[in-house]
Amino acid sequence: MAASRPRPRLRRVALAGGAALVAVLLAACTASGQPQPTMAAGASPGISASASVPLETSQTSTKSPVYWLGRARNGVYLYREFRDAPGSDNAVAKALRLMMSAKPLDPNLFSPWQSPKKLAASISGTNVITVDVSSDAFNSSVDEQTAQLAVQQLVYTASAAAASAGVIDSDQPVQVMLLVDGRTDQLAFNRVQLGQLMQRDPAMVAPMWIIDPQAGTSSPHGQLTADGRTTTPGSVVYWQISRADIKTDKAPVVTSGHTTSVPSGQNQGQYRFSVALPPGKYVLRVFPSDPGAGDPTALAWDSKDFTVTR
């Protein structure tokens, strides 16, 4: 985490007007006793509630962090990509517009959100991010669990973008209020009751994911440096690299190994390793335990296709 900083003054940043409206609504929500932060229901089984999901830092990337939904192992979880975010909107609005309008780089990921006509974001000095979005953003028919994940997708993306841009105090809890057309009493996707401050639910994020390489990218000169994140700092991460351009029922593993994620400090949960590879197309998979001779696609928490060039 970043070094402790004085609590920032009130900041408001907004899209397409609406900043005053958001500020008034936020004041109305907090003036007579601030609502207690809540975590979305419907958490996937088998994930410890004490798992660590550290906030992104302002040194993480110059690109916008965006979370998506992805199926892996025994359920659907949140995964993160870093994306170019053109335009003059503030950092939170940029990331949320990407989340609601763009497609993930990884074809295995998806988002139930629709591109909204209106979107505004504001940040207060008490680390509260308020997002006001038009109702057309919810024009998807989803089940209860997917709706819960989608709301957390917004919470994760908004807080990640604010932390990465350095506009919140990363040493303090971050809370998100989601409004629909300026109202607090709406249902997201006709499933999830809004109107309460929300925090990141650690049960919703994938316990292990790959940050680099991103799907479809190229690694030059035969050298791959991979890094990622696990929500259990100090845990062992097993990895395998297979050829993606060999058309067989089960592509052979080119190389494999394991590493330990950083147990504590600013980079807690991060893992990194490097390997030399000849030119070709590959897939990298990461696992919580040694996959051995089993089917890697059934055990991997995350996978990414990439190319090594000459």
Rank of each mutant, 00 (worst) to 15 (best):
M1K: 08
A2V: 15
R12Q: 05
L15M: 10
L15F: 06
A19M: 08
A19G: 12
L25D: 10
L26E: 15
A28M: 08
A28K: 07
A31M: 02
S32H: 14
Q36H: 11
P37T: 02
P37K: 07
A40K: 04
S44P: 10
S44V: 15
P45I: 00
I47V: 10
S48D: 14
A49N: 11
S52M: 15
V53E: 08
V53T: 12
L55N: 11
E56P: 11
E56T: 14
T60C: 01
S64P: 10
P65G: 04
W68S: 05
A72K: 14
A72D: 09
Y77P: 13
L78K: 01
Y79N: 11
E81H: 03
R83L: 15
P86R: 00
D89G: 09
N90H: 01
V92D: 03
V92C: 03
A95C: 03
L96R: 02
L96D: 04
M99G: 13
M99E: 12
M100L: 01
P104L: 07
P104G: 08
P104A: 06
D106K: 10
W113D: 09
W113Q: 05
P116W: 00
K117T: 10
K118D: 04
L119K: 02
L119C: 03
S122N: 10
S122T: 08
S122A: 09
I123T: 09
I123Q: 07
S124V: 01
G125D: 07
T126I: 03
N127D: 08
I129M: 01
T130P: 05
S134A: 11
S135V: 08
D136T: 07
A137P: 07
A137R: 00
N139A: 05
S140D: 07
V142D: 06
Q148M: 11
Q152C: 07
L154I: 12
T157Q: 03
S164K: 11
A165R: 10
I168C: 05
I168H: 04
D171I: 10
V176R: 07
L178Q: 06
L178A: 02
R183K: 15
T184R: 05
T184H: 08
D185N: 00
L187N: 06
A188T: 02
A188S: 03
G195I: 04
Q196K: 09
P202L: 08
P202N: 03
A206S: 13
P207C: 09
A215P: 10
G216P: 14
G216W: 12
T217S: 13
P220R: 04
P220I: 05
T225V: 15
G228P: 04
T230A: 07
T231W: 00
G234F: 02
I241L: 06
D245H: 12
K247F: 15
T248E: 15
D249E: 15
A251N: 10
P252E: 11
V254I: 13
T255A: 06
T259C: 06
T259F: 00
T260W: 04
V262F: 02
N267S: 15
N267K: 15
G269C: 14
R272L: 13
R272C: 10
F273M: 02
V275S: 06
A276E: 14
A276Y: 11
G280V: 11
L284S: 13
R285C: 11
R285K: 15
F287D: 13
F287P: 14
P291D: 05
G292E: 05
T297P: 11
A300W: 05
W301T: 02
S303P: 07
